[in-house]
């Protein structure tokens, strides 16, 4: 079966010469939920920006290839790639730029050519999936931070992506909003790649984890195994929050 995401030997250096990725290989299959872990500066964001062609060998010095459901990420395919890969950025104020929640969620699908009733339905469905349908006519800057993060997820869901990529989904959320977002993400029937420093969140939502360090994949396996591998954790500046021990969590409450 063709993987949803196929990254082969991806290397990238920024125009200023800083090399961020050194040959990354990663396959994600349909329906998988993968956490992308790694310390600051490991190249996680650089990798994410490659997934929808914001960065590529054409903008810097790069090598290797990225393909989404078999379609290579190249200039020619950009629009289709950006439909297939939905990226939710870290700061919802960067993602929500239109005057109302409805217009913002409609932005993506309208760019894909959807119109009228079909567009309206797509927008309300997406808002419904994140529990924000009642806020369709509010301006985004009048929502709370947690609500804005959820609308940001809806803007991407409205494009019906094949893979949802989240950059630090739990950052700056209060514990209740963090849990609400987890409930929403768990119920979504979509392939998920989640970049995060929040290791308990990764364990809660993603059965599989990939650890990126200094532009290389240094571990790829069960999230539980990565978080309990003390040598690996120490070597790559990963730390669990104080008092949190994955071993004390009941095995059947882990995601599968």
């Amino acid at each position: 079966m063709t993987p949803v995401l196929e990254i082969r030997d991806l290397a990238f250096a920024y125009p200023d010469g800083h090399q961020a990725l050194f040959g990354v290989d990663l396959h994600v299959h349909q329906g998988e939920r993968v956490a992308l872990l790694g310390p600051n500066g490991a190249g996680k964001t650089t990798l994410v920006l490659h997934l929808n062609g914001i960065l590529s060998g054409e903008t810097g010095h790069g090598d290797g290839s990225v393909a989404v459901s078999g379609l290579p990420v190249t200039k020619k395919n950009l629009l289709e790639i950006r439909r297939r890969v939905g990226v939710v950025f870290q700061d919802p104020d960067d993602q929500l730029f239109m005057g109302s929640v409805r217009a913002d969620v409609a932005f993506g699908p309208a760019n894909l050519g959807l119109k009228g009733a079909a567009l309206e339905k797509r927008v309300l469905d997406a808002l419904d999936r994140v529990g924000m349908a009642d806020f369709a006519d509010r301006p985004p800057h009048h929502l709370s931070f947690g609500q804005r993060r959820r609308v940001a997820v809806a803007t991407v869901l409205a494009m019906e992506p094949e893979i949802l990529v989240l950059d630090e989904p739990s950052s700056n959320l209060d514990p209740a909003s963090r849990r609400e977002l987890a409930d929403i993400l768990r119920d979504l029937d979509v392939t998920l790649l989640m970049v995060t420093h929040d290791l308990p969140y990764a364990l809660e939502l993603c059965p599989r984890a990939v650890v990126l360090s200094d532009g290389r994949v240094v571990a790829d396996g069960r999230t539980y195994d990565a978080l309990t591998d003390e040598a690996l954790m120490r070597a790559h500046r990963l730390e669990l929050p104080w008092g949190f021990d994955p071993r004390t969590i009941a095995v059947d409450s882990l995601p599968r």
Binding site: L79, R82, D91, D94, M98, A106, F107, N111, K115
Partner: peptide
């Protein structure tokens, strides 16, 4: 810099220089 990030987010959702009429 925020402007640049917003532009990235717009590109990620298929922006091609025109705001789609239906999205307003």
């Amino acid at each position: 810099e925020r402007g640049e990030r917003v532009h990235l987010a717009m590109l990620s959702r298929g922006y091609d220089g025109r705001l789609p009429g239906d999205a307003r």
